[in-house]
Every structure is written in structure tokens, then in C-alpha cells.
Design a protein around this nucleic acid. Structure first.
Lengths: 230, 230, 230, 230
DNA sequence: AATGAATGAGGCTTCATTCAT
DNA sequence: CATGAATGAAGCCTCATTCAT
């Protein structure tokens, strides 16, 4: 079972262990089906200690959402280098995104599914993160339009919709990749770049988007999978 | 209070009332937070009757998922005319999809959120519907490729990914449209067609996908909103 | 333990059984030490039924206070005949009071002790009853002054204090009588009438208040105890 | 926060701080609602230290009762000069009593309410003090009878009842005075002396008890309020 | 066809109390 | 002298579910 039971740890450490256990339990069982008993046991602690440090089931869940939202956004931010071209930034960001969601499937479940299905308070917490990502993508689209010498007669609402669509596609692919053995982060990112950048119309006619070399941390994952059309 | 309390109705009718109440309650409260008490009261029936007809909370939820999944897929199917070009079929299908989700937000919440967050059994039930839609889209993509005289050297997994991305984008837009006042089904469909068919790259360069006239039921909604680029 | 377990009773009856059990338990254990488990068992019912009918521990306690407060004030009211002289009314009222508290010691504990020691909400509930009794006594004092042809230059606050003192003395005697075997309601009433009406000063000088014949329901208790000085 | 946190104090001092905090907390929250956490924090000490010095919640509460009981009885004793007439002794004793309860409302709540509502053990502890006061009053009554040349054909039980009534009246007035702004210890004492010594009957006829000058510590309170009838 | 009455089981939360340092 | 870390036990409350009519 859970972590090795070593007594008397400083509070900060114990709190992280509890959050680890909680993310895992919430991710797998769902918020309501997860019991504080199970979480405490998985954390290798007694229930009262969980309450002493995290206050309540709601606060515990909120803490999980916050921690994982920050972790995800920072992973994406770390994967992107601001100076580069828009498509390159998107490619890098998607790579970081799929890598992170792939490595932390329970956290992804918490953020993408659980946080959105159990009350406004949690949904708002997760929506804040999503908005941050949508804003990042929106900015990329605007920049890309500028790069293409095409000042945005793309109406603002239009761009918002495009960003929502792109992010939704990414979320869908993340969940799909986690559930489908053999799909790598790189593949997911390539698929989405093709879809988003070239469009199905271009794809049909043999003009896909051509993928640049992946950023370091991703290529480290080892897979040298062929990107479609490359 | 729920429906007007009229005694002695045929079973089939009562069952639909119960499912109506259940979909509404599950959609708004969530599966676990919804209580059988509330559902029974909203349906204007006593609790034992709910159990007599629907057996258990799990079965009731399953019945909701099935009914709403069927309703959604049939709405989409009804919106599409098989003979037409692939993009036209997609456009019509998306129109029907967004129209239906917009008119039945609780059902959409049940299918897209609740069914996926409360255990494998329900998730599988909803996944079946999703697969049907993904299959429809996949077929469209293959057809489109064929139409473009470009026999699919699009690998099968590649097409699957594209379909998942497109469906995810649609789901994301549906939820976004439901939460954002002023966004019509037509707009959502147009945004997604631009995104999916033309690709951001083309959009940037001023070559959007051009929308055909909408199918009847949609134009009936009255809005004559301008589609980007049309 | 508890009442004979007979299933399926109408709600009103069950509620009274629950209140009986609750008054007994609260009176003997105290509000906080009383557990809902114990109350339910004593009532011969399962805990959920208690909650279904009485909502919460707080509401249950409030219901107890209200029922017993009403019972006590009505017992006193029923013992007094408005037309008679002030001292006679007080005598009758005290008789009814001590009889009731003697027969319902748990109820008396709930009203006099428990209700006042567990939060403003309950205290206010019990204070309402006490005020009613204090008002009754106050009125008697004013009437008595008028009877003695002595228009009240007794300041209003003065009378209030006297009433509070008299009621406090009665409460103290009630508790004392319940704890001291052999003290009857009649004796308690006589002691208090002597104390209150004659005053210690007069008593010392051999001029006690002379007790009239007791009202019916009290003499029914059988004891033919000698009233001091009679 | 409670007292200023200064480390390393002699045990006796720390204990008093803890008792101060406990009396305050028990008096305001009630015995059961008071948590050891709150008491420790208010005392500016860690919980284990409270246990080290006072053993348990029960022992802590007992210690509170004992300390405050002793403080109250000693205040009364200090207010009375044994040689004087009985009514004068009572007057002085009541003055000291109401002064003390007015200055220590939490202690009064602990003694009069909390100690009597949370189990025999505590009730007995408080009853001991009460008995001491009742005995004092009983003795006064006996002395008064003797002074009136009227050897007690007042039966012993009769006298006991009178003393209980008087003490109950005093307790009631103490609580009332604490809750009613503007009521001074002197007024409360005067009200009770009138009530007890003259009796309502005499009062009605314009023959109240006449108050002597107050003892020093009371007159220090400054108010030179007119005693009814003086 | 329909329901008022009833419950087993389980979850969240809090508390008095104790180690180990 | 003093405490941060930790827990067994127990209480309130709610829910899905059934029985007897």
C-alpha cells in the first residue's frame, strides 16, 4: 500500500504526500466517490492529520486543483521559447502539454474532468487555468496573423472561438492519448499541429504542416516517431 | 415543484417524466450530488415508483445516458444528407450538433461531463456514443481524401487522431457556446469549419473555408449571422 | 430498552415518542453528552427516522424545549383561577408549578438547566417561557398592591426585580424538591408563600402567611402535609 | 490572542493563566463546546503543557470550579462581620455576592450553570459551595429567630426550604443583574432584602425593610442609589 | 398503479489525548 | 520547561433502498 510509513515528518513534506494521495484518489475514483479514509490511508497518515493540515474535503480538493493547475501551466510555459515563430511556439507548447498530461494522468483527470463536474467553486478554479491557456493560444493566433501580414480582420470573438476549439482539440487528444497505448506526446502534438495549422482541406491535398525538430526535453523521451508528412 | 401531479398515467409516460427529471437533476447537480429524493419530487412521483420502474440509481443514470445519447446521435444523423460533399455533410452535422446541445444543456452535461466522471460503466456507455460520432467524422475524412483523389496514405491512426481532435474541438465549442450568451449554433459551426477545414495557416493567409447555406432546421433559428469570410 | 417496538406508526405518534425519548435523554445526560444514537434507540426507532422527522439535533432540542415550555406554562395557567385574590392565585400557580416539575423532572432539567447552557438560540427559547411566568408574577404583584390600596409607587424596575427573585426562588425550590426525597409540591409551595408573602421578618415574629385550601388537582396527590403555621 | 507570550514562567503562575483562560472559555462556550485547543491558545501555551499541569479536561474543569467556588465564598465571607445583627449580615453578604458575580460573570456562569449541567461529578463540586452558602443563610435565619425571641419552632426542614428559596432568589437576581444593564449590586441586594425580610405582604402595606449603610467595598462603587422605601 | 413508513451503511468532521524531541 | 506531530474514538448526518399497505 501507500508510501512507506515513516513517522514524524515536517509539515510541508506531509502535506505534499497528502496531496499526492488525494490527486491519485480523486483522479481515479472521482471527487465524490473518493473517501477521506482512502486518501488518508494512501498517504500513510491518519485522517485527523489530513484535516489538521488541509481542513476539509473541499479545501483538499481545491488544493489539488491549484497545485496541478500550476504544475501544468508551468510545464507548458517552460516548454515554450517566446522569441520563436508562432507555429513553433505552439508546437513546443503542445509537446510540453501532452508530455505533462501523459506523465500525470490522474492530475489530468482531476483538472479536466473532476474539477468541472462538482460545483461552481471547483469549476471556477480550473477555469482560471484553462483561461490562461486559451489566452496563450489566442495570443499565438493573433501573432501568427500579424506575421502573415494580415492584420486581424479576424473579429475578436472569432479568434476566441478558434482558441477554444484548439484547446478543446488538445484536451480531447490528451485524454485519448492517455487511454490509447502507443500514442506518444509527439504524435499527439503532430496530429494537432497538422489539424490546426494546415487544416483538413490542405491535408487532403497533400500540403501538411511540416514539423520542426522537437524541443530538447521532449526528444529526450526517446521516441523517434515519424511525423506524418515529414 | 415538478410537473403537475396527475395520478394514474400509463407507464411509458411516467417513465419519460422520470427520465426528464433525472436528466435535469443529474445535469445540474451532478450524478452523486443528485438524490433520488429530489428526482422523485421533481418528477412528481413517490420514490418507490421510481425504483419500481427504473430499478436503481445506476440504472436510472444509465437510462438517461442512453436516451440522451440516442437523441443526440439521431439529431446529428437527421441533419446530414449522405449524398452531399464531405464538407457539406460536416457542416450540416455540426449545425445539428450545436443546435441540439444548445437546446438541451442538461443532457449535454450528462453526456459530456457526468457520464465520464463517475465510473467505468457510465463512461463506457457514453464512449459508445462518442465512438459513433468519431466514426462518422472519420468516414467523412476518408471520403474527403478520396474526393481529393488522394487515396489515404493518411495512416489509419493518423485519421483517428484527426477525428478525435475535431470531435474534441466540437465538444469544447458546445460547452463554450452554452456558457457564452450570444453565441449561436451557426457561429459555432462556422468557427469549427474554418478551423478544421481551412486550418489556421490558410486562415492567416486569407483563404477561409466558405460556408454553404445552412440546412433547414438551423436557418429556422432565425439568426442571419455573418460567417467569417463569407 | 425503551418503548415496545411496534412498527409502522403514524408520523404524529412517532414524533411524540421521539420527543419523549429526547427529553429524557437530554434531561439526564445533558444536551451535548446526549447522542442521537441513544435517543433513537430509546425511542425504538432508527436514527435516520429521527432526522427525517426532526431534522437535526438542534431542531430536536428546540422542539423539546418548545413542547415542554408549553406544557409547563399551560399547567400553571390551568391551575390558576383569574378571579381570586392575588395571594390565592400565586398559591395555586405555585402548586401547579411544583406539581408539574415534580412529575416531569427531566423536562424541568431541560428547561431550567440544559436550555440555558448551550447557546443563545436555546436560551432565548427558554427565556421566552420564563418571561411569560415572570410577567404573570409581576402582574400578581401589581394587583396585590392595588388590592392593598397602595397604588404602585413601587417603581417598575423594582417590581421586575421582585418577580425575578420570586421566580428564581421557585426554580430553586423545584430543583431542591426534585432532589430531596419527601418534599411535596404542597410543602414547596407553602414554604415559598411564607417566604414571599410574609417575609422572613414577619415569620420571625410569628406572623406567617396563612395557606388557603389547595386546589383540587394538588390535594389529589394525597399527601396531607401540615403547612407551617397552619 | 490571549496573554502576551512570555516563555519560562514558574509553574504556579502558568497554572493560574491556564485557569483564567479555562474559566473564560468554559463560561462563554460551555463545558463541552469549549475545546482544549482554544483554552491552550487563549492561555498562550501549548496543549501538552496544559495536560502536564492539569491532567485532563475533567480535572481542568474541576480545578476551575474549585478555584472560583473558593473565590466566591471568600468574597462573601470577607463582606460579612459576624458580630452584627442578622439582617445586617445578610445585607452585607448579598452585597459582596452580587459584587463578585457582577465582576466575574464567566466564573458565575461556570459555577451556576456549567457546573450543574455536565455530570454528577461537577455538580457535586458546585453543590458543596452552594451548601456552604445555604448553611450560612440557614444559620442567619436561626439567629434571627433567636434574636426575635422566638425559639425555632420553625421546623428544621422548613428553615432549609427558606434558605434554599433565598439562595435561589439571589442566584436568579445575580444572573438577571449580569444580563440587565444598569442594575447595580446594591440594587439587587436591596431588592432581595425587601423581598426576603419584609415579604411582599408588608411591602404592599408600605412597610419595607430599611436598608442600613453599605459596607465599604460596595459603597466604593460610587452609586448612591436610593433603596426603595428608604 | 402508487405510497407513507422505515432502515443499514457509510461519509465527513472533531475532539481529547499522547509521543518524541 | 516546552512543543510540533500524530491518532483512536466517536458524533452528526445523508443516502440508496425496501416493506407493507
Amino acid at each position: 500500500m501507500g508510501a512507506v510509513k515513516s513517522k514524524r515528518m515536517p509539515r510541508a513534506v506531509r502535506e505534499q504526500q497528502m496531496l499526492d494521495a488525494a490527486v491519485r484518489t480523486f483522479g481515479q475514483r472521482g471527487y465524490m466517490a473518493a473517501s477521506m479514509d482512502e486518501i488518508a490511508e494512501l498517504a500513510g497518515v491518519s485522517k485527523p492529520l489530513v484535516y489538521l493540515y488541509l481542513n476539509s474535503k473541499e479545501d483538499l480538493f481545491t488544493a489539488c486543483i491549484r497545485r496541478e493547475a500550476r504544475a501544468l501551466t508551468e510545464a507548458v510555459r517552460a516548454g515554450v521559447r517566446p522569441g520563436l515563430a508562432a507555429d513553433r511556439q505552439l508546437w513546443d507548447g503542445l509537446g510540453a502539454f501532452f508530455t505533462h498530461t501523459g506523465r500525470n494522468p490522474d492530475a489530468w483527470s482531476v483538472l479536466h474532468l473532476q474539477a468541472r463536474t462538482h460545483g461552481e467553486r471547483f469549476a471556477a478554479e480550473a477555469a482560471a487555468m484553462r483561461e490562461e491557456i486559451v489566452a496563450f493560444v489566442t495570443e499565438l493566433i493573433v501573432v501568427a496573423a500579424r506575421e502573415a501580414h494580415r492584420d486581424p480582420d479576424l473579429a475578436e470573438g472569432e479568434v476566441a472561438g478558434l482558441a477554444v476549439a484548439l484547446v478543446g482539440a488538445a484536451e480531447s487528444l490528451a485524454t485519448w492519448a492517455n487511454a490509447t497505448p502507443g500514442v506518444t506526446a509527439r504524435q499527439a502534438a503532430a496530429t494537432l499541429m497538422n489539424f490546426a495549422w494546415a487544416g483538413l482541406g490542405n491535408l487532403m491535398e497533400g500540403r501538411p504542416w511540416s514539423a520542426p525538430v522537437m524541443s530538447d526535453e521532449l526528444s529526450a523521451s526517446g521516441a523517434v516517431d515519424v511525423v506524418h508528412g515529414a
